[in-house]
């Protein structure tokens, strides 16, 4: 079997302008990070709202949260991505549709589709964590807050959520790591994230092993360091007297 090892491949010219292959990996990583962070922002905001909804006594409100979670957790991520990328833009009203398809750069419109997909997908998971976090708090907390004359909004805002978030740091960390890994589906719709750049490098240079090894190393190092960082943070913000929820 003829395979030409060449670990110097990353420093060779791509033949397009002045770039070397390492540049591709760096821009790819940039996209991956941007996708994960933007998706995470949506997931946290929406997930928190939905999580709160699910803990409310009003049946109709908590049903909304439940329906959302059921829908978004039972459809594969890739199908959701296809919906956001291939289907939704075709049903946007004019002139937004034309603007989205032609006014925006293709990588931006693709980015928006992937961020929407990742954000809404992960929101269902964040929602469940927030709900579990709130429900793990002693009942007395709500009663005490209400007895102090706080309205429900203030009870959540000042009493329940701050504590819930602190105890769900571990599961939220793994959700964040998941969104980071899941962002690689962007490569399947032609967005040049880290995985797509890896595949392209492998294809241009025929040095598959080297390209995939570097990508693996990048993902691995980033994930491990994030995990260690979050463990440290978890210790710092631990609520005395409350055990944190096991997040795996």
């Amino acid at each position: 079997m003829n395979y030409h090892w060449d670990w110097g491949i990353f420093f060779k010219s791509t033949g397009i302008g002045q770039e070397i292959y390492l540049h591709w990996f760096i821009t790819g990583l940039g996209w991956t990070v941007a996708l994960s962070l933007s998706g995470w922002l949506i997931a946290m905001l929406l997930g928190t709202v939905l999580g709160v909804l699910r803990t409310l006594p009003q049946r109709s409100l908590s049903a909304i949260g439940t329906a959302y979670v059921n829908l978004f957790r039972n459809v594969p991520l890739l199908v959701q991505l296809f919906v956001w990328y291939f289907i939704v833009p075709d049903y946007l009203p004019e002139p937004i549709q034309t603007w989205f398809k032609q006014g925006l750069k293709p990588e931006i419109s693709g980015f928006i589709s992937v961020v929407a997909c990742l954000g809404l997908f992960t929101a269902a998971r964040v929602c469940e964590q927030v709900r579990t976090g709130i429900q793990a708090l002693p009942r007395g907390q709500i009663n005490a807050a209400l007895a102090l004359g706080l309205n429900p909004w203030k009870t959540y805002r000042h009493v329940l959520l701050p504590q819930a978030f602190r105890i769900i740091i571990p599961p939220l960390t793994s959700e964040f790591l998941n969104i980071f890994k899941n962002s690689s589906v962007a490569s399947l719709i032609g967005l040049m994230d880290l995985l797509a750049q890896t595949k392209q490098t492998a294809e241009f240079t025929a040095n598959l092993f080297e390209a995939f090894t570097l990508a693996t190393l990048i993902y691995f190092t980033l994930n491990m360091s994030l995990m260690l960082m979050m463990r440290w943070l978890e210790k710092r913000v631990k609520v005395p007297g409350l055990i944190s929820l096991g997040g795996k």
């Binding site: 291939f86 833009p89 075709d90 549709q97 034309t98 398809k101 032609q102 293709p106 419109s109």
Partner: peptide, 10 residues
């Protein structure tokens, strides 16, 4: 072709 047909590329 889908990208072309749906108007994302000219």
């Amino acid at each position: 072709f889908l990208m072309l047909e749906s108007g994302r590329a000219v």
